[in-house]
Simulated scan of single mutants.
Amino acid sequence: MGKKTKILIVEDEMVIAANISLQLNELGYEVTGIVPRGEEALLHIKSETPDILLLDINLKGTLDGIETALAMQKTHDIPVIYLTANSDDAHFNRAKETHPHGFIAKPFKKLDLQRAIELTISQTSAKDESNNGSAPQNAKTYVLSDCIFVRHLNSMVKVPIKDILYIEAERNYCRIFSSNQEYLLVITLKEMDKKLPSRHFFRIHRSYIINISQIKEIATTHIVIGRKAIPINKSLKKVLLRRLQTI
């Protein structure tokens, strides 16, 4: 049996924290502790370092969740998943500076928690393998007319094309951003561009391929998909506009 992923819960609403702990145990994870304050979380991390920090943004102590993450990152590299009941732009932009692995909006379902943690584990594993100079095994990508099959954790996962927002280059890898998940693939963006059906996708930048149907806004220097502003130059913008006229 594999080693369990260790998770520290930092949440000042004890009923919510206890419920999260129960769900994590049911999902097969190990809860290293439940603490209500950022200061206590920093002390806990020194004595028993978790694999993932499940962190409420709106803590009532001296440090809020974002300040706790910043303090933690001075000494530890622990993936952070934020819990929040407040998803306004100010909180989101502050939280982004800590490069979290996920956000879970309250109230949330067990599936939301499960997906956020699985994604974090997948990202961390891919990062470790990349740093070690190796690639995930059996990571071949299959592109069909209406979906892509990608290696995720220990299985091949079907990702419908309609759910893909955009694809971003990451050195010799590329990362698919879908409506509810991220996938790191061992393939360059150039090779991915060759495989994708051109009627759905457009390489808008050297680092980005977009799903044309997911465009929310076309501005002077960028387009918007989801919450992501992706740069585009004048010549490619003209090509994109012509493509949109033919759809």
Rank of each mutant, 00 (worst) to 15 (best):
A17N: 05
A17H: 04
A18V: 00
N19I: 04
N19G: 08
N19M: 03
L22F: 06
L24G: 06
L24P: 07
N25E: 13
E26N: 10
E26D: 15
G28E: 10
G28S: 07
G28Y: 12
Y29P: 05
E30W: 05
V31K: 02
V31R: 05
T32V: 08
G33R: 08
I34H: 02
V35D: 03
V35C: 12
V35R: 04
P36Y: 03
P36E: 01
P36Q: 00
E39C: 03
E40P: 01
E40L: 08
E40Q: 10
A41Q: 02
L42E: 02
L43E: 11
L43R: 13
H44S: 14
H44P: 11
H44Y: 12
H44T: 12
I45G: 11
I45K: 10
K46R: 14
S47Q: 15
E48S: 11
E48W: 07
P50F: 00
P50Y: 04
D51F: 02
D51M: 01
L53T: 02
L53N: 02
L54F: 06
L54E: 02
L55N: 00
D56H: 06
D56E: 06
I57W: 00
N58E: 12
L59P: 04
K60P: 06
G61M: 04
L63W: 08
G65E: 00
I66Y: 03
I66H: 02
E67P: 06
A69L: 05
L70G: 05
A71H: 07
K74V: 01
T75M: 04
H76V: 02
H76T: 00
H76D: 06
D77N: 07
D77M: 03
D77K: 11
P79V: 03
I81A: 07
I81E: 02
I81C: 01
I81D: 04
Y82Q: 09
T84Q: 04
N86C: 09
S87L: 15
D88N: 15
D89G: 08
D89E: 12
A90T: 12
H91M: 15
H91S: 15
H91T: 14
H91K: 15
F92Q: 14
F92C: 12
F92S: 12
F92K: 14
F92A: 15
N93R: 15
R94L: 04
A95F: 08
A95T: 08
A95I: 07
K96N: 14
K96F: 12
K96R: 14
E97N: 10
E97P: 09
H99C: 06
H99N: 14
P100S: 09
H101Q: 14
H101G: 12
G102K: 11
F103K: 10
I104K: 11
I104T: 11
K106Q: 09
F108W: 10
K110Q: 15
K110H: 10
L111T: 10
L111F: 03
D112R: 08
L113H: 05
L113G: 01
Q114E: 13
I117T: 03
I117Q: 01
L119T: 12
S122F: 11
